[in-house]
Design a protein around this nucleic acid. Structure first.
Lengths: 247, 247
DNA sequence: CTTATGCCTTGATCCTTGTCAAAAGCGGGC
DNA sequence: GCCCGCTTTTGACAAGGATCAAGGCATAAG
């Protein structure tokens, strides 16, 4: 088992996080998709007074595995990873979150996994205590949080099938299709992956070499095309879909 | 990849499930631990009128992967597995549930995984629509459901680390300690596993042969003791704990 | 434009685990 | 108490993927 101690990943928040408290919900790009959607103006306003905007740079960590659960947040934009690791440094990415997703552990003392920005990102950050109190008083918000948590659980369990039972080929194919669904391709049909090869390996429970070999092979057979380090074009999605469940 | 089509596992519910509608919540053994705990007498009574008790035999399936989500339930006693599989028959167990746990997919159209009894079991079964309506009107119940779902998600993510990054030895050690925590040992310190070797393999994302070899080896080194097919004694929990994260 | 720094790719080899096959042993039924 | 069926164990072998080791190539800095 290889060990990595990736210092760049562990940059703590700067002493004073760049807060944009002046920003309100009115011009928030995720207001209709995040859990705050459905709140009336007064409630949304009350919630916004609890939170503050925070900007993160790629590589910054907001929450640590096993640390006190002091904050929760909505993702305004950017991509972040949720990860756990063994004592000897093996890492497993247990979730990737995007704009409008919710992060952190409400109603619990500890954060069971770390949260780290993969790209530059903006969050709408709430102290957990205040957020918990607000949620308890607003059934609609709690309901949306429940819906989202149930969906997360479904997705997570589907991923367990991949980790436990799929081959390297199937894992990579599933991953690429999943990225194609979540990320928008540019005019040339190229997707800009928010993850490095190592991080893809950490999502799939395999190694960087295996990911690289599988992707190269898929390029050779014309199923995908690789553009620079982070670019992928899904040339033949049907073929990719087929690779999802067969030798 | 091996394929199994385990017919005994797929026994459908009998045409008329043995219902014990006469049973009330008053003498329910899980009333203080299931999500209904915390409801006042009137509300609990209303909820009980929605549900009915059902008895399952080991091997019976209550919900199917991808099927309509028509019912949800509290487990009164027994052990059940949650599972997903690939089109070619590889199975991954994504959860094991015990007395007082909640099963099924509220607030969603489809059940994303199957639910099958591992031992004889009793459920308190609710039609999903009625349950959803009740939950929407009772914030306390919804809050308990949220708490439980958040805990499930945390446990599930912890299990992803096992599936993606742990060795066979570490997987089996982690599994045995987990069982030791959840199940009570008898006077001799022997735990009666609710899972066959194959099912253990399906939980750990490995094969029956690997599970067997690891357990035999642990017995040889005196860390555990094997008693019949389903019995295990955790002789040296500290040593087992050590095997959880090292070669 | 040139150079330097990491990522990423590629190659060779090893080894853990999966696969195939058969023997052993537990448990239930007669 | 004995036998039969099925689970579990054990063995031999194969292979997919991990590990070790260079080398190539984007990307950013000078």
């Amino acid at each position: 088992m290889e060990m990595r101690f990736d210092m760049a990943q562990n940059g703590a928040l700067p002493p004073v996080a760049r807060s944009c408290g002046g920003q309100s919900c009115e011009n928030c790009v995720v207001r209709d998709h995040a859990i705050c959607a459905g709140l009336d103006d007064a409630d949304r306003d009350a919630l916004s007074r609890i939170g503050r905007r925070v900007t993160l740079q790629a590589g910054q960590t907001v929450m640590w595995e096993g640390g006190d659960s002091t904050v929760v947040a909505n993702v305004i934009d950017g991509t972040l990873k949720l990860a756990t690791s063994t004592g000897d440094g093996r890492e497993q990415i247990v979730g990737v979150v995007y704009a409008a997703d919710f992060i952190g552990r409400p109603f619990g003392a500890r954060t069971p996994h770390s949260v780290t920005a993969l790209t530059d990102a903006r969050l709408c950050l709430f102290p957990r205590g205040s957020f918990d109190g607000f949620a308890l008083r607003h059934g609609e918000l709690q309901h949306r949080l429940l819906q989202r948590t149930l969906d997360d659980l479904d997705r997570t369990r589907a991923w367990m099938l991949l980790l436990g039972r799929k081959t390297a080929r199937e894992k990579v194919a599933t991953f690429l299709l999943d990225m194609g669904r979540r990320l928008r391709a540019d005019a040339d049909g190229v997707i800009d992956l928010p993850l490095s090869r190592q991080q893809i390996a950490d999502v799939l429970g395999t190694t960087i070499e295996t990911v690289s070999r599988q992707m190269t092979e898929m390029k050779r057979t014309g199923v995908i095309d690789l553009v620079g380090r982070r670019g992928v074009r899904l040339v033949d999605s049907a073929a990719l879909e087929a690779l999802t469940e067969a030798g």
